[in-house]
Design a binder for these strands. Structure first.
Lengths: 216, 216
DNA sequence: ACCTGAACACCGTTCAAGT
DNA sequence: ACCTGAACACCGTTCAAGT
């Protein structure tokens, strides 16, 4: 009423995001919410509010909520891919690297339970039509296939279809991760114990070499 | 207006369920919807409508929608438990029985994808407070533990903590099942191939006997 | 080219009221 | 003891309108 508004003033938050990369801001805000309050707390309204933007602004950049979740999933596969490769590479790319990669996979899921759940059962499950242009899960999977091929080349892994081997390895770590997230493993040590056991058994089913030393 | 209603008449559907077991009718209606139209189509309104009952009648028998889903999950574990036991028992309770049990697990998940998803990630994940009185997943798990103990007694399985072994086996079949449901395995044959491979590798990591015949 | 505000259809849930 | 009907708070989404 009283004060003469020379500049538009106010709109402090809106100003911040109008010029920036709104799609990216929405993605990272969605990620934040999912990680900290769970998937049920993610509403388009809350995302808009947090970003100082209308609740329908999202539709200028994403087809709908499902598309936003698809972007969240793709980002998850991108990060998983990187963590897997680092574990494999820094682990020395041998047996130790392989086992580090398995542990890193499970660790990622346990550290980001809600994000991990969005990565699966979401866009992936609804048929290829709604998949993002490049399926980011293929990237993460590719790291695993590459590792197995390299192990085979070094005579460290069984020489069988690498794609099938990789699917098997993925099944095992995915299964352990899901059981952990589903609350079947009640104490954190249980996850650790199963994780170690599974990866060790996995190697003795995949790796070639010592004839399964007697289990004492 | 015109016709004099001697008997209450009408209310043809309501009459049918007032005396019956409404909770059970609601559970099976929910199950039907989930199996045929997916979890997103399950609304309390539709359940009530199908049963000729108010959409809030459900609250007389279940705490809320989540509780209904918990009942759906429990029923799923009950059926899974039975199918696992039958596979194990009819398979001869040896190596063949064990492998039949693994195949039956994956088969159950593939045949009832939405139901299987409700079984996990739902009530199980939300902490012990909301779990049903007796955790029905323990029953299905118990069948697996019993089988492993029996295999150990017959000298067919590695002598190690049966609980840990069972968790490992569960991880593998759960992982294969989830990858199949998540659309990672595109063709049905892929599921079959991975399923067979995983169960065979599983046995050679769990069973005792022939020293891992050379993979040709 | 990007964003808003009102409106719409549809949820789960509560609660006073009925029988 | 069991069920109803209206009401409430909260969704995702559409669309004409603004800049």
């Amino acid at each position: 009423m009283a004060r003469p508004p020379k500049k538009p003033a106010a709109r402090p938050k809106a100003e911040r995001y109008h010029h920036g990369d709104l799609p990216r801001a929405m993605l990272s805000e969605a990620l934040r919410t999912i990680q900290r309050r769970g998937i049920d707390s993610l509403t388009l309204r809350s995302v808009g509010e947090k970003l100082g933007v209308s609740r329908t602004a999202l539709y200028r950049h994403f087809a709908n909520k499902e598309a936003l979740l698809g972007a969240v999933a793709a980002e998850g596969f991108r990060r998983l891919r990187q963590e897997l490769f680092e574990a494999w590479d820094q682990g020395g790319r041998g047996r130790a690297g392989f086992e580090a990669m398995g542990a890193a996979y499970i660790h990622f899921a346990v550290r980001h339970p809600s994000h991990y759940r969005v990565m699966f059962g979401g866009a992936l499950a609804k048929g290829d039509a709604t998949l993002p242009p490049q399926d980011k899960s293929a990237d993460a999977f590719g790291v695993l296939v590459d590792a197995l091929v390299e192990l085979q080349g070094a005579g460290l892994a069984v020489s069988q279809d690498a794609h099938l081997l990789a699917l098997f390895v993925w099944s095992v770590v995915h299964g352990v991760a899901m059981l952990a997230l589903d609350g079947v493993l009640h104490r954190p040590e249980d996850t650790e114990t199963l994780s170690r056991f599974a990866i060790e058994r996995l190697w003795s089913g995949i790796g070639v070499g010592m004839p399964a030393e007697a289990v004492k």
